[in-house]
């Protein structure tokens, strides 16, 4: 008869490794291709938390996730340089979001400028290409534009508010399988 599960498992987790407190990891372990299961596990877990929140809290779920995103945005951006200029602020934002979200400014063809000043506020359309939120929604078959998307809205608004010192808002204009259009408003 083979080894029991307990013996097998204990053997698997036995090492002779010496771990010192001063050891600083110099790379992410394991390599990226082995992280697929971890990533999918996280995406699914995240998706189901939000789905359940929506089932229990209804429309209140949006407020919760927006706030969570906003806190995250403020926290991440507080170490970044403050910028008055909207273009500089967007450049800063793209550094902050790097690896999770990529975006570019967009305008309809009949408009000359990307950045529009109107009634005391400034707005710009942004097309989001890569987005971990969209990926998570699609991983569990959840509709886009719901509370999970509000985490991104809050995140961007929090970061932009921190960088520019102005109040911000991010409206979802359209969600698609490959890209989404958002309107960033600064007051």
């Amino acid at each position: 008869m083979g080894e029991s599960f307990i013996d097998e498992t204990r053997e698997k987790f036995r090492t002779d490794l010496v771990f010192r407190v001063e050891d600083v990891p110099m790379r992410c372990d394991p390599p990226a291709e082995e992280l697929e299961q971890t990533l999918h596990g996280l995406m699914q877990l995240n998706g189901y938390i939000i789905k359940s929140l929506e089932e229990i809290a209804g429309r209140g779920a949006n407020a919760v996730t927006y706030r969570a995103g906003k806190k995250f945005g403020h926290e991440v951006a507080k170490y970044f340089e403050k910028k008055d200029n909207v273009e500089d602020a967007l450049r800063e934002l793209s550094y902050i979001l790097h690896g999770q979200y990529t975006f570019e400014p967009w305008k309809p063809s009949d408009r000359d400028e990307y950045i529009v000043e109107e009634n005391g506020s400034t707005f710009i359309y942004l097309v989001f290409h890569d987005c971990i939120v969209r990926q998570s929604c699609r991983r569990i078959g959840q509709e886009q534009g719901g509370p999970l998307c509000q985490t991104l809205c809050g995140y961007v608004v929090g970061a932009v508010e921190e960088i520019t010192g102005k109040r911000g808002k991010l409206e979802i204009i359209h969600t698609g399988p490959n890209a989404c259009l958002k309107k960033l408003i600064l007051k």
Binding site: S109, V127, H174, T175, P177, A179
Partner: peptide
């Protein structure tokens, strides 16, 4: 008729 406005969301494909 207005491809210049396409932002590549691919909703139409879906």
């Amino acid at each position: 008729v207005h491809p210049e406005n396409c932002m590549g969301c691919l909703s139409c494909h879906e």
